[in-house]
Design a protein around this nucleic acid. Structure first.
Length: 724
DNA sequence: TCCGAATTAATTTTT
DNA sequence: TTAATTCGGA
């Protein structure tokens, strides 16, 4: 029997609750994954549900892997039969297995964002449309959104000629995808839902397969995903969704918090549980996070609490500029090291990637190891993508985008002109490239040399396709491909400094094929490719004792003993572009982001802001983030000047740093520096334009005398100025 | 066919 | 500021 004694009473209730719809609001660090895994285990152990009839869906491969592992731990061998996977992987599996009746071949290729963009550019070219007017990125966003909303081209509203064209683009894009025997990410969900909706044979094959469906991070589902989940639990209605509306930070990707907030509108009889006991953070950290998130209006009310110790105050440090802030991080890390913490205990968060550079530089110059989460993915490197394109063409002859990628890589004298002619013929006849490649009429239009080279390329493709179906182990196929395609040789000839690393990446790719073959001897090439496409940087493992640097988004789901959040300034965090806020929902999402950041910390939370920050080459005065003003004063310790906008805030007191404990040496800096303003500096005011600073006056708020040509000398509150 | 100048745009990115 | 992409000339 499953031992539930390690669960608290709330968790236990959610675990043992019998069938029917169930929604669990699981606050940060409240043991969400434990509840899901125990619930699955309990269904099997206590209710006798067959493992293979349980479907657990997550958003990331990492989360899926973790869940699988825990289930194996709880259930042993039996756990292996449970269907655990991401939304996309789950749909891909269903479509591969049962897609034939709806016109899908088993060997379809999955196009990632880059492939999608390339395909759209080709569509625009075929339709002779201007890329300025119909930007490929915008078109991709529109199409992805449509698919999230379960809209096909025919469902797009066309109010003017522009939207009319957009619809045509969407239509042509779909045709091209079909021709290439490919699906994009959005399709995986969209097509599955459509098939469930409209194809009785598909529905019969899929529904009834599962008797229980569980969804993790439900607050991040979009419309199509919710539809999918509903369809999959039609009949049995054993749908358990777990999530936290306060941690929903992907609205801009189509996530709809209403899915969890209004779950009971769809399932009126759903049982609701809230997990509010936190096992991660100190009381002070939790109070701070609670205080901030409580400002959001649109949320399910809840308050995290903990039995953990009170803990240290939250440190807020104001530095001069972003370089000074980076030095603060460095000092912080060093100080923690000297207190016996490990580098891997520390995480540094920022709102945007652009902020990482200075911090990296500071750490690098001090020889402190760090790793950046969410940088370039292994599978995004050009050489890896090239080889993957070969593999795709081998399994899916219709994959035009991949074919275009490799047709002249390595260089085999097939130039732009030839390719353009091929593309034009293909567009004209509405056929795919590989189709055109051995068409005599098309070839007749080309020069002699081009024809010969294309023929040679065609032979290579045949050869490689034979290789793909040779039954050789995956790793051997990879190695042979590198040899026969000439790709390996190309890299060996290359004497640029990067060539070595690229060759290494190529070997690594072959090794990963080998590894899959050893783990799953019957895995096919297309399975390998699917694995790769659905893989992300977040899945790459961590190793070594290093400081972790990442965006707040990347931090969701993680925890660290010590967390430093940088850039707590208005327009940085909360982020805001040039336009004024139009949308209060956006501010609330930024606040949720802050909540996510703060609740990652177990023991210490250190927040920093810069008096002046260089953004896009322009200096900007840093106005302290409103989120700082929302912190409970008694749990916060300020180092440095209290910014004017906070001076009146309750409970905040200035603490003059004692040298021993200060992270940044303030001895040389005075108020001028703290505000980033000096006499003689050129500053810009929204109304008066550019002027020169005459005098900087202490006080709160600090005011600055500025002489503006045409306006005279004015006293201005410092935070209204930006350096010109 | 390739390299360097010019141009452009600039959050976050689970798959 | 910078990085990425595009374009033009050799």
């Amino acid at each position: 029997m499953l031992d539930l004694s390690s669960l608290n009473s709330r968790q236990r209730e959610a675990v043992v609750h019998a069938g029917g719809p169930l929604v669990v609001f699981a606050g940060a660090g409240s043991g969400k994954t434990r509840v899901i895994t125990f619930r699955v285990a309990h269904l099997i152990a206590a209710h006798g549900v067959a493992p293979w009839r349980i479907l657990a869906v997550t958003f990331t491969n990492k989360a899926a892997a973790e869940m699988r592992e825990r289930l194996l731990g709880l259930l042993g061998e039996e756990g292996a039969a449970i269907q655990v996977g991401t939304f996309h992987a789950t749909c891909a599996r269903l479509l591969r297995r049962h897609g034939e009746p709806i016109g899908l071949s088993k060997d379809f290729t999955i196009y990632d964002d880059q492939d999608q963009l390339a395909l759209l550019k080709r569509v625009l070219r075929d339709l002779r449309l201007d890329e300025k007017r119909y930007q490929p990125k915008a078109m991709a966003a529109r199409i992805n959104y449509a698919k999230q909303e379960m809209q096909g081209p025919e469902d797009l509203e066309t109010t003017d000629s522009w939207s009319e064209v957009v619809r045509r683009i969407y239509q042509a894009y779909e045709e091209r995808l079909y021709q290439a025997n490919a699906l994009d990410f959005g399709d995986l969900i969209y097509r599955t839902v459509r098939a469930l909706d409209s194809s009785p044979s598909f529905r019969d094959a899929v529904v009834g397969r599962f008797s229980h469906v569980l969804v993790d991070e439900f607050q991040d589902t979009n419309h199509a995903q919710f539809r999918l989940v509903r369809l999959l639990s039609e009949g049995h209605r054993n749908l358990c969704v777990v999530g936290d509306d306060d941690q929903s930070i992907y609205r801009w990707r189509g996530a709809d918090r209403r899915n969890i907030l209004d779950f009971r509108a769809s399932f009126p009889d759903a049982k609701l549980f809230k997990l509010e006991q936190n096992y991660r953070s100190t009381q002070r950290i939790l109070r701070a996070a609670n205080a901030v998130i409580a400002r959001n209006v649109d949320r399910e009310p809840k308050e995290l609490w903990t039995e953990n110790e009170e803990g240290d105050a939250i440190l807020v440090v104001r530095t001069m500029d972003e370089r000074d802030e980076a030095r603060l991080v460095l000092r912080g890390v060093r100080e923690l090291l000297s207190r016996g913490q490990r580098l891997s205990d520390v995480a540094v968060f920022y709102r945007t990637h652009a902020q990482s550079r200075v911090i990296e530089e500071a750490l690098r110059s001090a020889n402190i190891g760090y790793r950046i989460v969410g940088g370039m993915r292994f599978y995004d490197r050009a050489e890896v993508k090239d080889l993957l394109a070969y593999l795709r063409v081998m399994t899916n002859p219709a994959d035009d985008m991949s074919l275009l990628r490799i047709i002249n890589t390595p260089a085999r004298g097939i130039g732009k002109t030839t390719i353009v002619r091929l593309l034009d013929s293909a567009a004209l006849q509405g056929r795919g490239l590989s189709d055109i490649l051995d068409d005599h009429e098309v070839l007749a239009q080309l020069g002699n040399a081009a024809r010969k080279r294309l023929a040679a390329f065609g032979r290579l493709l045949c050869d490689l396709r034979d290789l793909a179906s040779s039954g050789l182990p995956l790793g051997d196929i990879g190695a042979e491909l590198v040899r026969r395609s000439g790709y390996g040789e190309m890299l060996q000839q290359d004497d640029t400094p990067e060539a070595d690393a690229r060759l290494q990446n190529v070997q690594e790719l072959v090794a990963s094929m080998d590894e899959l073959a050893r783990e799953h001897p019957d895995a096919s090439l297309s399975e390998f490719l699917e694995n790769v496409t659905l893989q992300t940087s977040a899945d790459e493992q961590t190793e070594g004792d290093r400081v972790t640097l990442m965006t707040v988004h990347a931090a969701k789901g993680l925890e660290f003993p010590i967390v430093m959040v940088t850039g707590l300034e208005e327009r940085v965090f909360p982020f805001k572009g040039i336009d004024p806020w139009e949308d209060p929902d956006e501010l609330e999402e930024e606040r949720r982001l802050a909540y996510v950041a703060f609740t990652r910390a177990e023991q210490r939370l250190i927040l920093s802001l810069a008096g002046v920050r260089r953004i896009f080459g322009q200096q900007r005065v840093g106005v302290p983030s409103r989120f700082l003003t929302e912190l409970p004063g008694e749990d916060v310790e300020w180092i440095g000047t209290i910014p004017p906008s906070l001076a009146g805030a309750s409970g905040i007191e200035r603490r003059v740093p004692e040298p021993a404990e200060s992270y940044v040496d303030y001895s040389e800096s005075d108020l001028d520096d703290m505000e980033g303003l000096r006499r003689g500096m050129q500053v810009r005011h929204p109304k008066f334009g550019v002027g020169e600073v005459r005098e900087v006056a202490q006080g709160s708020p600090p005011r600055v005398s500025v002489r503006f040509p045409g306006w005279g000398t004015r006293k201005i509150i410092a935070s209204y100025l930006e350096p010109a």
